[in-house]
Each structure stands twice: as structure tokens, then as C-alpha cells.
Design a protein around this nucleic acid. Sequence first.
DNA 1: CCATTCATGTGAATAGCTTCACAAGTAAAT
DNA 2: ATTTACTTGTGAAGCTATTCACATGAATGG
Lengths: 216, 216
Amino acid sequence: MKKKISDSSIHRLSLYFRALSLFEMENYETVSSKELAKHEKLTPAQIRKDLSSFGSFGTRGLGYPVHELKNKIASILGIDRSWRVALVGIGNIGSALVSYKEFMKHGFQIIKLFDNDQRKIGSNHKGIIVSDIKNIQQELKESNIQIVIISVPATVAQNIVDDVVEAGVKAILNFAPINLRVPDDVILRNENMSMELEYLSFNLVNYSQEDDIEEV
Amino acid sequence: MKKKISDSSIHRLSLYFRALSLFEMENYETVSSKELAKHEKLTPAQIRKDLSSFGSFGTRGLGYPVHELKNKIASILGIDRSWRVALVGIGNIGSALVSYKEFMKHGFQIIKLFDNDQRKIGSNHKGIIVSDIKNIQQELKESNIQIVIISVPATVAQNIVDDVVEAGVKAILNFAPINLRVPDDVILRNENMSMELEYLSFNLVNYSQEDDIEEV
DNA sequence: CCATTCATGTGAATAGCTTCACAAGTAAAT
DNA sequence: ATTTACTTGTGAAGCTATTCACATGAATGG
């Protein structure tokens, strides 16, 4: 039975990958959990625990081999390959994501675009012709899409997700501010940008320096 | 002494607010923790615990008053007021965020834009003239900016953040894929969109249906 | 070759978060 | 007035995640 890896641990793997890429660029041969921890504001123990659930990659007294560990993490995260991604909804956010280089860098290739707006259908975005959303099921299948990014208004998101699921896609990244229903075998993640601003707002209101003085 | 509220709990408050807005639009007078839980795929107990750390808002046997609780949560999150936000970096992501209506809906008003590109400085985005990043410190102070959104390349992000901190801003939302250093009294949150795609990728590679069959 | 330093990997301990379970309160029906 | 059906708020229990602490191994310098 596979050990269940926690969500936070997976997210930290992304951080480790990013940090290792930097250390690699600076020609580090090895890096210790301590150095990595300092770089990503984590504890050395946590990094060792995280990594140890996938194997023993380090050398005692020396640390981890930068290049090798980076590749190993890429393989664990599945970003050592190319993913076929489609994006639905060519609005503000959608357009930005098509050109977002970080996605490409990590192997996420947006190769299909969909919209329901006649003015957008047929237009060219970064070399991709926008398809009519009416044909989404067929085209997702034809293009063998593995991941779909939803950047449509909340009101229409559920209908689109139902189609996407019906087309056999098993992974969805949702930017619409709504809680979508998907079957158990489909992985759905939400990207809610307001949420982080609200987190800031909460902290400004509740924990600003002035308030501390009043505490018991 | 104030009770420390966990990050996840704060994030869930955002979800509750969103859900309550919907229930309000559908003219619900009251809503139970059970209904809210179903709507947001959480447990009723968790919702009651979350809310109970801020007070007793419900009525036994009846549930929570939708409108009142929504307002109460808005006040807790600090989204019952208007926040003065500046955005630095008018690239793909930056441009999209300027027009992102969810921010405005929750009281986050982007009123200043900065860039270092001469072609962008002076141009008009949604009624805001882009300022030269050289003047950022002075202009942040003049406009009394409370929150800054960073959407510049990773390489220049730290320098900008240093300026922003120097200008007295206490809350920063960072879209650059890099770990930024800020003093303890500044709240920094990172929005890393690749991270969620990598989470999907990890799960596709490690927990897809096919693999389950091989488990012990 | 020995001492010293460094750093991993991991059980054990701790801390933090979520769920359970129930007393207590409310409303509605009879 | 009493019963029934609900639902909150919350200590206690259970579970998960993080940190501690140390045995173990590797490299370096004298």
C-alpha cells in the first residue's frame, strides 16, 4: 500500500524543485537540508521527512546532490514530461495564462483553447486557434487532453466541467470562484486569487502592530 | 490574549462568505452548518468550530442567519471596507489582475499601477495611468497604499519588495515564482499558479486508477 | 589513523487540526 | 403542555503533521 503524501508535502516538493533549480544555476554540487530550509523558510527536519518518504537521496555529512535530486523531484511531481493542457475561457485571466511562461517551463503545454464568444472563436492566441466550446468533448478527446484549466465565469463553470469530465479528463484546475462537483476519480484544484488577498486583509485587521499593545 | 486563528481556518472563512452570498441571493433566511458543509464539501463540525472562535452567531435548532453571518464574516475578514491596492508589473498576469472583478467585489481597489517599461509608463489601464517604478516609494506613500500586488519577473521581485517595505506597506501578494524576504511585521503571501498544476501532475502520475490495481 | 565536523534518516515526542458526541436550546406540531 | 425534530457550541478524543533528538555514516585535517 502506497503511503499517502499530504497536500502540503506535495506543495513543498514544488518549492524544493524551484530552489534546486536555482542552486543548480549557481553551480552547487550538493545542498544540505539546512541550506534548503533557509532558502525556503522551512525547517531542515521537514525537508528531510518530506524527501525520505520517496527514498534516500542524500549523503550523510554532505547533503543532497543538487542536479540528481532536482531530477528525482521532477520525476516524482511528474514534471519531467510534457502534459497536454486545454484552457477554457479566453477572458482576462485565460488570456494571461496562455502566455504564462512558468506553465511551459514545467511541462504544461496549453495546446487547445475554448470559448463560447463568436468574436473569439477562430481567433489566434499564441499560435492556437480558439475552438467553439460546443465541440469541447470531441476536441478534448481528439487532442488527448490530460489537464483542463477553467477560467470562465462562475455561472457557467459547472456545465463546462461536466462536459470535461464526460470527455474523460481526470485533472482540472479551476479559476472560477465556485465549488465545482466532480466524480471521485477526477482531481479538482481551485485557484482562488481573492482568497489570498482576503488572508492579507484579515491579518491587517486582526493582527496589525497597533492591536498587539492592547493584548493581555 | 487573542486566540491564534489557523491559516486554513481563515481560508475557509472566505469560502463561507462566498457560500453565504449565494444563499443570500437565493433568499435563504437561515442556513445550517450541515447545509453549508454540503455546499463547500466540508464537515458541519468544522464550520461550527471555525465560526465559534469568533463568537456565537447561530441559533440552536435553526441554524445561522444568512445575511447577518455574511456581514459578520465580511467584518472578520476585513472585506467590509475598501482597501487601497497597488499593482507592480503590467505584464500578462498584471494586466489580467487589473481587470479582475473578484478583487473589486471584495473591496480590493487597485488604484496605482507601476512598471519599468517606458512603453507602458504613462499608458492607461482601466482608467489608471501607469507610473514609473522609480517613483514607487513616494507614490505609494502619497496614495496611502495598504496592499501591493507583485507581478514582475522573479529576478527583479526582491528589489521591488524592498522598496515597497521601505515605503511602509505591510501586506504583499506575490505572483513571482520566488521566495521573497520581508521583515516580520510585513505579511507576505505567495500565489503560485504552477504549484496547483504540479499538484495535479503529481496525482495523475502517482494515484491514477491504473496504479490502484497494483497496490498490495 | 584518529578525532572532529557535518548532515542524513527516522523513531519518538510534540503540537496542531479535525471530528466526535452530547448537553442545551429552539421551533413546530399535536 | 408535551413530544418530536433540529441544530448549535464545545470539551474530549482522534488523527495528522511537524519538530526533536540521536544513532549512523561520510569527509576532512592533522
